[in-house]
């Protein structure tokens, strides 16, 4: 699940993965949780008129194999002018402490900024965050929100590397590292909800929906896909389209799945179990309802 736009750039890494974790070791890859991304977008939406970009702190975990997991983010006040850049340190400390109280496992792993231009100020801020997270190295996430015409929304991750004979904080090479979207499988349905919302008119969807409705949607889309495959197969059979062997093999693997589990007896016993559970559920419900009503009846 790559977040970046395809490019021909090769990720330069000077360490082979699998080394023992040492403080100060460069992160080799970044994974981003959707919450962190959405917080960044919300922050960008709420920027003041004078702000060209917004920055903030990334919280998450570091793992031994050099992978950095960004799990949440919060906005940080900063100001940029022609002459100087300022980051509100007190604000950052307060917010970090607050987040730390709720989720002690998440530590500062880097910082984000919107837009994809990396300049001297980026280097300065990167240096500042590096001091906050010593002895570990921090990552920088450049989030292109896609509002500038001609630029695609994407996320890029960098690590900073000092440059020059005498390293100075304002000089820094941002080395790109791979960046992926990662979330737990159980959170998937939340994202599905948001994607259906995004495509809906008005960008709103009524809620709550029952399980059955969600199931109906998936079944319908499966039926649609089967129809599409069927029409493709039929056109191949009719000789209108030249058949693709790869597609054929793929369909064979998918649709030729074994149905032994569904043999008559197994299905029936499972059906009985399910019906039993359903009966039990409605029995319990009606008992609870009766009990609640009976509580309102006095003996006199």
């Amino acid at each position: 699940m790559s977040l970046t736009v395809e490019s021909s750039a090769v990720y330069v890494q000077n360490t082979a993965p699998g080394f023992i974790s040492t403080p100060g070791r460069a992160p080799t890859s970044v994974t981003v949780h959707p919450v962190a991304l959405f917080s960044i977008l919300d922050h960008y939406l709420r920027r003041t008129e004078s702000q060209e970009r917004v920055i903030g702190t990334l919280l998450g975990k570091r793992s031994d194999n050099g992978e950095v997991e960004v799990r949440s983010s919060f906005a940080v006040l900063h100001s940029e002018t022609e002459e100087q850049v300022a980051v509100d340190m007190d604000y950052l400390k307060t917010m970090y402490d607050l987040h730390h109280k709720v989720n002690p496992k998440e530590v500062i792993v880097g910082w984000y900024s919107t837009g994809s231009n990396l300049n001297t100020y980026s280097a300065l801020i990167h240096d500042f965050y590096s001091q906050e997270a010593t002895p570990h190295q921090v990552v920088h996430l450049a989030v292109n929100t896609g509002v500038v015409e001609g630029e695609k929304a994407c996320v890029k991750a960098y690590i900073g590397s000092p440059v020059g004979v005498y390293p100075k904080p304002e000089n820094c090479v941002f080395v790109p590292i791979p960046c992926e979207l990662r979330f737990n499988e159980t959170e998937r349905s939340g994202l599905d909800l948001l994607t259906t919302t995004a495509t809906a008119p008005n960008s709103t969807t009524p809620h709550p929906v029952t399980d059955l409705e969600v199931l109906e949607q998936s079944l319908k889309s499966v039926a649609d896909m089967l129809d599409r495959v069927l029409s493709y197969v039929q056109s191949v059979l009719a000789g209108e389209v030249k058949g693709d062997a790869v597609v054929g093999r793929y369909l064979m693997d998918t649709l030729g799945a074994s149905t032994e589990d569904l043999e008559k007896k197994g299905f029936n016993s499972s059906l009985q179990d399910t019906l039993m559970v359903s009966y039990l559920a409605s029995l319990v419900r009606s008992q609870a309802e009766v009990s609640a009503r009976l509580a309102l009846v006095t003996s006199t």
């Binding site: 959405f38 977008l41 919300d42 960008y44 939406l45 929100t145 509002v147 909800l193 948001l194 919302t197 995004a198 495509t199 008005n202 960008s203 709103t204 969807t205 009524p206 809620h207």
Partner: peptide, 9 residues
């Protein structure tokens, strides 16, 4: 109701 803003959408 669930809503996504245009940017997130």
């Amino acid at each position: 109701k669930v809503r996504t803003n245009a940017l997130m959408g």
